[in-house]
Design a binder for these strands. Structure first.
Length: 487
DNA sequence: TTTTGAGTTGTTCGA
DNA sequence: GTCGAACAACTCAAA
């Protein structure tokens, strides 16, 4: 006698913690089966235990926990449930699929080699078990296969790369969030707290909570508010003392919003307001950089490990634990650098302009290997992305694709005066300097003892002396780069 | 195959 | 104070 109960359909959530424009969820819901939604916290698959797939950093773990709560809540609102499991994803999902006699498993692809490899394992296990699987398009505007040179290589210069992506036209149309979901009587899962994603003793996440609301709803709100305030983005985006950036990066990182959604929202805003077309193009090109870095990672899975330009393998990096520590804690004596590093520690992000300044300082003034900086960012950024983080560090160091020329050494005083002219950004994150006049805020050592005393600043006391003289650091960097170029 | 033009984000120096 | 040149040479993409 035939069983009329529809068989369940599994949706495997990954870096796509949203309901709208979610191809896997959309298809699964449309297929009419009863849904089982699952997220697997996977630090156990062999493919994810290599240098090419590092465990999440502390800040990212915190974000993940909040984002999963938000996703679970919005699934429940629509009648479904999020099941949490921990362990090797392929084995766990294949086993679940057999247990519940699933008719199919759906997921969105992650175009990162180790994640693809895990998905390949699952696909194989499901095929053996005779269960359908559907791999849906991932969170890229274009697939790496679509953007190749005539010789079949990936593009390594941004401008031609982005022209090619733009030439492909609009990405696939957006998919609406399913209005209601029919959930299967699902098996049980883990309690989120048992994963210990959030810090307890000490609880250092206070600054993250103050700064962010993870989840799809907040991501959409941020996007709308940002596009409303977009005029002037092209200049404003470089000003850490102004709130001109989109603040979408961690939402994109965890797939709470898709790049396609950002793309269409921006294009719609441009159509409505032709006057801001230039600002829109500039903003979309930032999405292009995310895309570029991910394509680069696709072609170079060891991007976080290995210099893209092999000539840098001989670079004379210095091991200096004390200097690295001073940089990490925001105690270099350069206010703009220290402000950035403290913003990062407190909020899990750093303004883009300041990221370049602190990165240049670590790599060029201190001659510390870019991988040390990349790893620190990986641990402390809520938007730490497997593509963007190493690609941009390599860009600053000069070892990357389309890299900055060696002689581009950011002057931390000049950068501060140019992009934080009144010193508001420094005052916010380095409060011990808050009473200094703007004239000295980016170079407190040039103030007289009287002026320092009046502002309550003691150099070498409550604020450090510069750990290296700018001119000395610059000359030393240029000399080191000159040596590398001879190879 | 060869050639050509171009390449995210800067700083310093001297006229 | 402002402005242009120098800071190198190399790789990439496309014609």
């Amino acid at each position: 006698m035939p069983n009329n109960t529809p068989r369940p359909v599994i949706v495997w959530f990954r870096d796509d913690l949203r309901l709208s424009d979610h191809p896997a969820l959309h298809q699964a819901a449309a297929s009419g089966g009863l849904l089982i939604c699952i997220y697997v916290f996977d630090e156990d698959s062999a493919q994810l235990r290599s240098p090419q797939a590092r465990p999440l950093g502390g800040a990212s773990r915190w974000w993940l926990a909040q984002s999963l709560r938000a996703l679970a809540a919005s699934l429940e609102k629509r009648g479904a449930r999020l099941i949490l499991r921990r362990g090797p994803a392929a084995a766990i999902i294949a086993e679940l699929a057999r247990q519940v006699d699933a008719s199919a498993v759906h997921w969105n692809e992650i175009e990162i080699a180790p994640h693809r490899a895990v998905a390949d394992d699952l696909a194989e296990a499901l095929s053996v078990a005779g269960i359908d699987h559907h791999r849906h398009r991932g969170d890229l505007l274009a697939s790496p296969a679509e953007v190749r040179t005539k010789e079949g290589r990936g593009l390594r210069v941004f401008t031609p790369f982005w022209r090619r992506v733009l030439g492909l036209g609009d990405p696939p149309k957006l998919l609406p969030a399913p209005k209601t979901l029919s959930a299967a009587q699902g098996p049980s899962g883990d309690q989120l707290d048992s994963w210990m994603l959030e810090p307890t003793e000490p609880d250092w996440a206070g600054g993250l909570r103050e700064s962010w609301t993870p989840g799809e709803g907040a991501a959409q709100d941020n996007l709308t508010a940002f596009l409303d305030a977009l005029p002037g983005y092209t200049e404003g985006r470089d000003r850490p003392d102004c709130a001109a950036t989109s603040r979408l990066s961690p939402h994109l990182r965890f797939g709470e919003i898709s790049p396609r959604q950002v793309w269409y929202a921006a294009r719609f805003a441009a159509a409505e307001r032709p006057a801001i077309a230039g600002d829109i193009d500039k903003f979309l090109s930032e999405l292009g950089w995310r895309e570029f870095c991910r394509h680069l990672l696709h072609d170079h899975p060891d991007l976080a490990e290995r210099n893209l330009q092999a000539s840098f393998d001989a670079f004379p990096w210095i091991t200096d634990a004390a200097a690295l520590h001073a940089w990490q804690r925001g105690c270099t004596g350069y206010p703009i650098v220290d402000a950035g590093m403290r913003e990062l520690w407190r909020t899990g992000v750093m303004h883009n302009r300041v990221r370049m300044v602190v990165a240049s300082f670590l790599v060029k003034h201190l001659l510390i290997d870019w991988r040390c900086g990349e790893q620190w960012f990986w641990d402390t950024l809520v938007d730490a992305d497997a593509g963007s983080n190493p690609a941009n560090w390599q860009w600053v160091a000069g070892s990357g694709a389309d890299a900055a020329p060696y002689f581009r050494v950011f002057n931390p005083i000049l950068q501060g005066e140019k992009f934080d002219p009144a010193g508001d950004y420094v005052r916010r994150w380095v409060p011990e300097l808050a009473s200094l006049p703007a004239k000295f805020i980016h170079q407190p050592w040039t103030a007289t003892p009287f002026e320092l005393a009046a502002a309550g600043v003691t150099l070498g006391g409550n604020y450090p002396e510069p750990i290296i003289d700018h001119r000395v650091g610059r000359e030393r960097a240029l000399a080191a780069y000159a040596k590398t170029r001879q190879h």
